[in-house]
Simulated scan of single mutants.
Amino acid sequence: MAVGLQVTFDASDPARLGAFWAELLGYVEQPPPPGYATWEEALDAVGFPEDQRDGFYAVVDPDGAGPRLFFQKVPEAKVAKNRVHLDVNVGAGLEGEERTARVNAEADRATGLGATVQLVAQERGEFWIVMQDPDGNEFCLQ
Rank of each mutant, 00 (worst) to 15 (best):
Met1Leu: 09
Ala2Trp: 01
Ala2Gln: 08
Val3Glu: 14
Val3Pro: 00
Leu5Asn: 10
Leu5Ser: 05
Val7Thr: 14
Asp10Trp: 01
Ala11Leu: 03
Ala11Val: 01
Asp13Asn: 14
Pro14Thr: 09
Ala15Tyr: 03
Ala15Gly: 04
Ala15Ser: 12
Leu17Glu: 01
Gly18Glu: 07
Ala19Gln: 08
Ala19Val: 04
Ala19Gly: 09
Ala19Met: 03
Phe20Thr: 00
Ala22Val: 07
Ala22Glu: 08
Glu23Pro: 00
Gly26Gln: 10
Glu29Trp: 02
Glu29Ser: 11
Glu29Val: 01
Gln30Leu: 15
Gly35Gln: 08
Thr38Ile: 10
Ala42Lys: 07
Leu43Ala: 12
Leu43Phe: 09
Asp44Arg: 08
Asp44Asn: 15
Asp44Ser: 06
Phe48Ala: 13
Gln52Pro: 00
Arg53His: 13
Phe56Glu: 00
Tyr57Leu: 03
Ala58Asn: 04
Val60Gln: 04
Asp61Pro: 00
Pro62Tyr: 06
Asp63Asn: 05
Asp63Trp: 01
Ala65Lys: 11
Arg68Met: 12
Arg68Trp: 07
Arg68Ile: 12
Leu69Arg: 01
Phe70Cys: 12
Phe70Ile: 13
Pro75Thr: 10
Pro75Tyr: 05
Glu76His: 14
Ala77Arg: 15
Ala80Ser: 11
Asn82His: 14
Arg83Val: 14
Val84Leu: 13
Val88Leu: 11
Asn89Ala: 15
Val90Leu: 06
Leu94Met: 14
Leu94Ala: 12
Gly96Glu: 11
Glu98Asp: 13
Thr100Glu: 12
Thr100Arg: 12
Thr100Pro: 00
Thr100Tyr: 03
Ala101Val: 06
Arg102Ile: 06
Val103Gly: 01
Val103Ser: 07
Ala105His: 08
Glu106Val: 14
Glu106Gly: 01
Ala107Lys: 00
Arg109Val: 12
Thr111Gln: 11
Val117Pro: 01
Val120Asn: 00
Glu123Arg: 14
Arg124Phe: 14
Arg124Gly: 01
Gly125Ser: 06
Trp128Glu: 03
Trp128Asn: 11
Ile129Cys: 05
Ile129Glu: 03
Val130Ile: 05
Met131Trp: 05
Gln132Phe: 00
Asp135Ile: 07
Gly136Trp: 13
Cys140Ser: 15
Leu141Asp: 11
Gln142Trp: 05
